[in-house]
């Protein structure tokens, strides 16, 4: 499974990559914001996107909307891992078609639970 991790902080990308590797995801690429991520997604056969919300350039929510609006990418599950904690934002992400929402700070166990849930739903 090919995963794209999108976050403007390299340390957070590294944490997420390590956790994902521990959970058996070994094919992981990185992008530092939505506008770098989108062409990568359009060019490669990614199966899963983990993204932050607040990034310079294109924000995570806009990346999510762009993924859902592109029929070749619309099927890709998207997990938001973000410090954004306003109810309004969570509702907005849900309406935009997010598959999971994790608030920072988070634990390895939370990530595992959310991933299991996402892939269980997708079957």
């Amino acid at each position: 499974m090919k995963v794209l991790v999108v976050d403007d902080f390299s340390t957070m990308r590294r944490i997420v990559k390590n956790l994902l590797r521990d959970l058996g995801f070994t094919n992981i690429s990185e992008a530092d914001d939505g506008s770098t991520a989108l062409p990568m997604l359009q060019g490669g056969d990614f199966d899963f996107v983990v993204t932050d919300w607040n990034m310079p350039g294109m924000q995570g929510i806009d990346l999510l909307k762009a993924i859902r609006a592109d029929e070749r990418l619309a099927h890709i599950p998207v997990l938001l891992i973000t410090a954004e904690a306003k109810k309004e934002q969570i509702v907005m992400a849900a309406q935009a078609g997010v598959n999971g929402y994790i608030v920072k700070p988070f634990t390895a166990a939370t990530l595992k639970t959310k991933l299991d849930k996402i892939f269980e739903r997708l079957g």
Partner: peptide
């Protein structure tokens, strides 16, 4: 900021 972003909430 734009798009509602506020970063970590310190006074939940």
């Amino acid at each position: 900021g734009d798009n509602l972003v506020e970063g970590p909430i310190v006074n939940t």
